[in-house]
Amino acid sequence: MEAQRHAKPLAEGEWSTGFCDCFSDCKNCCITCLCPCITFGQVAEIVDRGSIDCCAAGALYQLINILTYSAWMYSCCYRGKIRAQYNIRGDACTDCLKHCCCELCALTQQYRELKHRGFDMSVGWAGNAARQQTQGGVAMGAPASQGGMTR
Results as ranks from 00 to 15, higher is better:
Ala71Pro: 05
Leu63Trp: 10
Glu45Tyr: 04
Val47Lys: 01
Ser70Tyr: 11
Ala59Asn: 04
Ile64Tyr: 06
Ser75Phe: 02
Asn65Cys: 05
Ile64Met: 10
Val43Thr: 07
Asn65Gln: 12
Tyr86Gln: 02
Arg49Glu: 15
Asp91Thr: 01
Ile66Pro: 00
Trp72Pro: 05
Tyr74Lys: 08
Cys77Met: 15
Cys26Tyr: 12
Ser75Gln: 09
Cys77His: 12
Asn87Lys: 10
Ala44Tyr: 04
Gln85Arg: 04
Val47Trp: 00
Leu60Ile: 11
Arg89Lys: 13
Phe40Val: 03
Val47Gly: 03
Ile38Phe: 09
Cys30His: 11
Ala59Pro: 00
Leu63Ile: 11
Ile82Phe: 03
Asp91His: 02
Asp48Cys: 13
Ala57Glu: 07
Thr68Leu: 06
Cys30Leu: 15
Leu63Arg: 05
Cys76Met: 08
Ala56Glu: 13
Leu63Ser: 11
Arg79Gly: 15
Ala92Val: 13
Gln62Thr: 11
Ala84Glu: 13
Ala57Gln: 07
Arg49His: 13
Cys77Asn: 12
Cys55Trp: 15
Ile46Ala: 01
Ala56Asp: 11
Tyr61Ile: 00
Tyr61Lys: 00
Val43His: 03
Ile38Ser: 01
Asp53Ala: 06
Thr32Gly: 07
Asp53Tyr: 05
Cys76Pro: 08
Gly80Val: 09
Gly41Val: 10
Leu67Asp: 04
Gly58Gln: 00
Asp91Ala: 02
Leu60Asn: 06
Ala71Asn: 00
Cys76Thr: 04
Pro36Met: 02
Ile88Trp: 01
Tyr74Met: 10
Ile66Thr: 09
Cys33Pro: 05
Tyr61Thr: 00
Cys54Glu: 15
Thr68Ser: 11
Ser51Met: 14
Arg49Asp: 13
Trp72Arg: 01
Ile31Asn: 03
Cys29Ile: 06
Leu67Pro: 01
Tyr78Cys: 11
Ala71Trp: 03
Gln62Val: 05
Ile46Asp: 01
Tyr78His: 12
Asn65Lys: 06
Asp91Tyr: 02
Thr32Val: 12
Cys29Thr: 13
Cys37Val: 08
Gly58Ala: 05
Leu67Gln: 09
Cys37Thr: 09
Arg49Phe: 14
Cys29Val: 08
Ile31His: 05
Ala71Leu: 03
Gly58Pro: 05
Lys27Ala: 14
Gln42Thr: 09
Ser70Trp: 10
Cys55Asp: 14
Ile52Phe: 07
Asp53Met: 06
Asn65His: 10
Cys77Ala: 14
Cys55Ser: 12
Thr32Gln: 08
Trp72Asp: 07
Ile52Trp: 06
Cys77Arg: 14
Cys35Ala: 15
Asp48His: 09
